[in-house]
Amino acid sequence: MTHVHDGLDDDSSTGKGEFVQDDIDIDVDGELGFEPAVSVTGAEPSGRPAGRSRTAPAASKPGSRRVLRRRLGAGAVLIGALVSMGGTYAAFASSSAPDTSNSAGDIAAGRQLYQTSCITCHGANLQGVKDRAPSLLGVGGASVYFQVSTGRMPAAGQGADQKRKTAKFDEQQVKQLAAYIQSIGGGPQLPVGDLRAGDIAKGGDLFRLNCASCHGTTFQGAPLSAGKVAPGLNRATDEQFYAAMLSGPESMPIFSDHQLTPLQKREIINYVQTLKASKDPGGNGIDRIGPVSEALVFFIAGVGAVMAAILWIGAKAE
């Protein structure tokens, strides 16, 4: 009621009424053309349409039919908005469902790579070889992406766990390998598109709840038992994050889409990547390790400096 047409409620029969009438005509014409456009872009309804709809009952000369039409229109807009929102969400939500873009060519190329680099340990039919490597049936493209793009596979040797190293295959070869493994056994796959979305703060809370107990609140990682390690997250890319959550490599649990929804996964990635890129406002971050690295700096730089000072003052005394 506080809009441009506020005064009209008191006196609708003045010349200003025509202006309102005009306005309503435009509104009627634009009913289907203009308002849905607003909802599709997701922008806030601007002041003008809102003012118009409010003035409408005050200048309701054209009759209740127009009101009904308006209401139907509003309903249509609402439905349209819901459909478009749902569609957007579905587009995100379904993106972790199997991706059908694996072409036959990719699969063939992946098979070629598998047979030269993986078959010795994982077997001719992905069934795994005893005392060498586990079966790859059902691990999915996400697992392949994580293991190969971080350089963990092909493995350098048997050990407590596989450490990150320089990747042996480029991005395209990784995708081909993933396509091949996926075509045989199925399993979770990496979604396409932007893997960062949503509220950074919520992502942070989810990270502290689900991830920090091993990777640490500052993403530095930590040793697990018997030489196994929860790696630091400083070098992980968006895709590797997502793939790790989907596939649960090594000691890491699997975070399926029922445990962390795709949006929550994107929020976590958003939080971690944003904080990794953030500067340290307090000076040198000392690798953000915490009290241990602070103690190191304290004893070497702090105590070292004051000890040098007392030696200096003491030396002058002699």
Binding site: R208, L209, A212, S213, C214, H215, G216, T217, T218, Q220, G221, A222, A230, I289, G290, P291, V292, E294, A295, F298, F299
Partner: peptide, 12 residues
């Protein structure tokens, strides 16, 4: 209380 971080050390 539901959250915890690895590498939680006290001051030296």
């Amino acid at each position: 209380p539901a959250q915890v971080s690895s590498g939680s050390q006290p001051d030296w």
